[in-house]
């Protein structure tokens, strides 16, 4: 439940943004970033559906690369007895 996912803001309706990460789209709540100006195109770190902080595109992309590697390892390795 604690994994943070960087996502890009695609549209904003009050405190709800449509965000995207690697082609996957979902609603993200912006209520925790009221003190910040969040605009379409910005990147945010998302925890349990809530944006907790803004981040740069470069940082978001390097996180996505890391998750790609993790997912590849998981799909190859997670077997249990």
């Amino acid at each position: 439940m604690c994994l943070g996912i960087p996502m890009q803001v695609k549209s904003i309706d009050q405190f709800v943004a449509q965000c995207e990460a690697k082609g996957v789209s979902r609603e993200v709540n912006l209520f925790m970033l009221q003190g910040e100006s969040v605009e379409v195109g910005d990147f945010v770190m998302v925890h349990v559906g809530y944006a907790i902080e803004k981040m740069t595109e470069q940082d978001a992309r390097s996180s996505w690369e890391l998750y790609d590697e993790m997912l590849a390892t998981l799909s190859a390795g997670e077997t249990d007895a």
Partner: peptide
């Protein structure tokens, strides 16, 4: 249940 990273969004949910 959760640490600060999940409890803060719960607080935001309630505050909203």
């Amino acid at each position: 249940a959760g640490f600060e990273t999940t409890t803060a969004p719960t607080a935001a949910m309630i505050a909203q």
